[in-house]
Amino acid sequence: MKGLLTFPSTPSIAATGVTAGPLEKKSPFHVNFDKMFDDERCGMKTNEQGHAKLMEDAIMIALSKVDKVPSDADFLLTGDLVNQMTPSNFSATTVGIPYIGLFSACATSISSVLLAALLTEAGLSKLAVAGSSSQHNAIERQFRYPIEYGSQKGDTSQWTVTAAGAAAITPYQKGVPSIERGTFGKSVDMGMTDPLNMGAAMAPAAADTLMRHLSGHNTSASDYDMIMTGDLSKVGFTIYKELIGNQGIKDFQNFSDAGEEFYGNNPDFMAGASGSGCSAAVYFSEIYKKMMDKEYKRVLLIATGALLSPLSYQQGDTIPCIAHAVELTMK
């Protein structure tokens, strides 16, 4: 109720697939990515086609790890940030799985997993693929400036990653992480207007979803081996910790943010990473692997998304944001 979900049958994430672009070799997470392209357009003609290719390959890798082909899958739930989500749509055309396109901005990595888990829980799906993706050039040109335009990015700016992550979700299986609970976020608008400081806009949404998840499911932050937000990055993550600190959380040892860590401390990437591929790539590689290795037994993943468009920003609207959370356990 109230956006809180419990999955008694604990659907499993049977396998994951993560693809990334050439620049993402600079990420400390890249060792766990399944496929790295040497070309930023993934060998395609346009950025958007390359974007679709990223997603397509991530889906195929996730399926191949469970020895399945696209025709075995019941649902595909993916999304991205490009207008009308053509990269996700086009990758869905190529794989040919019954498809539901989703938009939660950069929180799509988790909203897709939650919906796939719901379909599985209801007994309507034996194999669903969930995921999201982003491609630097395609997103920057849409939300900001042409790639070669020499504008100065400040310390609060984030770097859109080129990456895609996909997860194959099945009914409960032994030996793989399973989805126990989840929380759908509310769209939260704290009046932020700077599109070059998305972390500050998204932090309140992440804090809201975290607190609702903890109180709604009667758990506390110390119950988790890891509570990882999506792409708050350095500025947003600091604000988020301040916000939840004010609400009684004092120990931040098990807290981290995928965007903040994505490019390490490389100052070229300013405050860190963002994009729907950011959280998906980290959750479905690093976090998934650490769960498989039983290093993490229980994690809470909170993907964050900014629900703006270039149009809404130019019309002077503030930036509403959303965060969706999923709780994974390894038995």
């Binding site: 609060t156 704290m190 009046g191 500050a200 932090a203 500025v235 604000i239 301040e242």
Partner: peptide, 15 residues
């Protein structure tokens, strides 16, 4: 927390 209070908190942290 209202928007004004948040703006103040955000201003204090954002570099």
């Amino acid at each position: 927390m209202d928007q004004k209070k948040y703006a103040k908190l955000e201003q204090g942290i954002t570099p």
